[in-house]
């Protein structure tokens, strides 16, 4: 190329998939397989798009809800009779609708 020529516009091309691996459905680039927390995902080395296998989105959703509902750290103090003497923690039978009482001013 003559150094005095103006720079030429180069259309973006994705890296080509290696033989036998998946091609990105969006840009045609090669996809690499990763494993994260038991989930297989393919990521395009060109456009960084991610492809999930069947059922893996549901799996992710479950992981997420498990994360957000992580059981709180149970206190070691006084277990299992922890709490006040006037409490009723043994039966573990929660009254339906008991929570609505927590919405009142008294």
């Amino acid at each position: 190329m003559n150094p005095t020529d103006p720079p030429r516009y180069e259309p973006y091309t994705s890296p080509q998939p290696a033989a036998g691996s998946m091609a990105c459905p969006k840009c045609g680039g090669g996809m690499r397989t990763y494993e994260r927390n038991g989930i297989h995902l393919e990521q395009c080395s060109g456009c960084r798009g991610v492809f999930l296998d069947f059922g893996e989105l549901e799996h992710l959703t479950q992981l997420e809800s498990r994360f957000s509902q992580q059981p709180p750290v149970q206190p070691a103090y006084g277990q299992p009779g922890y709490g006040p003497t006037w409490g009723n923690r043994d039966g573990q039978r929660y009254r339906k609708g008991g929570l609505s009482g927590l919405f009142f001013s008294s």
Partner: peptide
Amino acid sequence: FWAAGLLEDEAWFTFLN
């Protein structure tokens, strides 16, 4: 409410923690 058995352990400990 937790002590009286009207609120689940999980809610109470999440709040307290």
